[in-house]
Amino acid sequence: MENVVTKNEMEIVYKKPKTITDTPMHYCPGCGHGVVHKILMEVIDELGIQDQTIGIAPVGCAVFAYDYMNIDMQEAAHGRASAVATGVRRVLPDKYVFSYQGDGDLAAIGTGETIHTVNRGENILMLFINNGIYGMTGGQMAPTSLIGMKTTTSPYGRDAAQVGNPIKITELIAQLPGAYYVTRQAVHTTQAVRKLKKAIETSFKYQKEKKGTCFIEVVSNCPSGWKMTPVEANVWLEKNMFPVYPLGDIKSPK
């Protein structure tokens, strides 16, 4: 073993973003939330906008996001994050505002707020974490649960005849003129995380230019709710979630 270099002689090439607090995250092992939190804060650090950013996290697993993101934040009632974000952005028109919402929040109880916020072209970033299940309440069916997916409230598998099909809300809102940039990303691989980071950077740039609503869906996992190991969950996600929720830009400015 020649040429062995000790840590002291090396430089740090990657560390936890400074805007992520030291509070250990309550998320289950392997949960995508932690990765999205980290990348979001990394972008905020790199853009130097910690002092100009207000985040909104509603009911859902990420309701405690303010424990981990070292920025001013507001917790919101279930489904109302984009309305709260509208209130913030309207009275602070030169600040950066994002909402961080789960599938139940954004695509079930908050569908009305989601559609109308985007329709008004509110200058906010809506981050939509879609893992096809209600994590916080213990693994119930989400509006985005896949056909046949077993959850605690669809124990025999989601049946379209009973409860409808998985809702592709991202494609729906992309139809609205207020949506400026709409994309679907993931965090299951290094490459995917890098693409998400680019999408967040792009969204904040558009927000500064007041272009309208930027909407990023992140197809994520729920190892606990899916009853898999994190590694299995990320394999399952690629095989089952991506065919229904294909990655890539859905609407991007010319």
């Binding site: 507001q74 919101a76 309305a83 209130g87 109308h116």
Partner: peptide
Amino acid sequence: LQAESELAAINMVYGASGAG
């Protein structure tokens, strides 16, 4: 701003009030 519902309106109030 005319909101899409009273639910949205009161939560916009929440956000704006929280922003001072």
